[in-house]
């Protein structure tokens, strides 16, 4: 579904990603872990199409197509969704209006009929119940004045409504208490299926108790220095990143 080969990316002259290789197949859940500043968010943003990052080398294929050729909205139409580490506040745009516009833009691009206000609300309310979200949040401006937890839930709500094929969740667990974490994990697990793939970016392995990954990758200094199964996350928790970073540095010598 997603193939990343030797991806190098930089911003403002700073080299951030330095040769990422990653393959994600339908039905799989991958976790990307790594210390702060290692390039996890950059990787997520590059896949979503943020244009502040220059791709200097490498390629990204999504369902066989050159993803880097597509605009962010085209990527969304193709079924890519990225939950932001820092969701953006948009004063003056109501959450319902935003989400309905997004859903209908995607449906339209796919040649599907647009949902009317009633059908949309039914759908949104359904998903909100699943995420234990206050309905009043829908009438507020997008993310404006939302607590950290509300913002993260709002990301997952968008994911649930937009129903992507490939979801990348960037630190969706940060700032959530354990109950909220379980709810969000339930929302994500509901999306799991043979045709979908999920990439969970996280700093802590805690989330992985609830969203159990098939693969775990460790990103350090813009490279994936180690990949493995579920057990790698537990190992990391015990050792911390320091051990891995050291091993990575030694292996490079």
């Amino acid at each position: 579904m997603l193939i990343i080969r030797n991806l190098h990316a930089e911003a403002e002259g700073k080299k951030i990603l330095q040769g990422i290789d990653l393959e994600v197949k339908p039905g799989e859940v991958h976790a990307i872990m790594g210390p702060n500043g290692s390039g996890k968010s950059t990787l997520a943003q590059v896949v979503a199409g943020h244009d502040t990052y220059d791709i200097t080398t490498g390629e990204v294929l999504y369902e066989g197509k050159d993803l880097l050729e597509l605009s962010p909205e085209e990527r969304a139409w193709e079924g890519i969704f990225m939950a932001f580490q820092y969701p953006v506040e948009i004063p003056g745009v109501r959450n319902t209006y935003f989400l309905k516009s997004a859903l209908n833009a995607i449906r339209k691009a796919r040649g599907e009929s647009e949902l009317d206000a009633m059908d949309f609300l039914d759908l949104a309310k359904d998903k909100m119940r699943l995420l234990n979200m206050e309905e009043s949040l829908m009438e507020r401006a997008v993310n404006e004045g939302f607590s950290g937890g509300e913002k993260k839930r709002n990301e997952i709500l968008q994911m649930a409504v937009l129903d992507p094929k490939l979801a990348i969740l960037d630190e969706t667990d940060s700032g959530l208490d354990i109950d909220a974490l379980k709810i969000v994990a339930n929302g994500v697990n509901a999306l799991r299926g043979p045709n979908r793939a999920i990439v969970v970016v996280t700093h802590y392995q805690r989330l992985l108790n609830y969203i159990v990954p098939d693969f775990v990758h460790v990103l350090v200094g813009g490279r994936i220095v180690k990949s493995g199964g579920r057990e790698l996350a537990l190992e990391l928790e015990k050792q911390g990143y320091a051990g891995i970073e050291k091993a990575a540095a030694e292996s490079r010598l």
């Binding site: 199409g49 962010p72 909205e73 990527r75 932001f84 948009i90 003056g92 935003f98």
Partner: peptide, 21 residues
């Protein structure tokens, strides 16, 4: 970028923000 990443076309995203203003 946030709006576009949700499938809203760039022009529509700009209009939405101007309208909100």
């Amino acid at each position: 970028f946030y709006l576009r990443s949700r499938g809203i076309e760039e022009n529509d995203a700009r209009h939405m923000l101007i309208y909100a203003f």
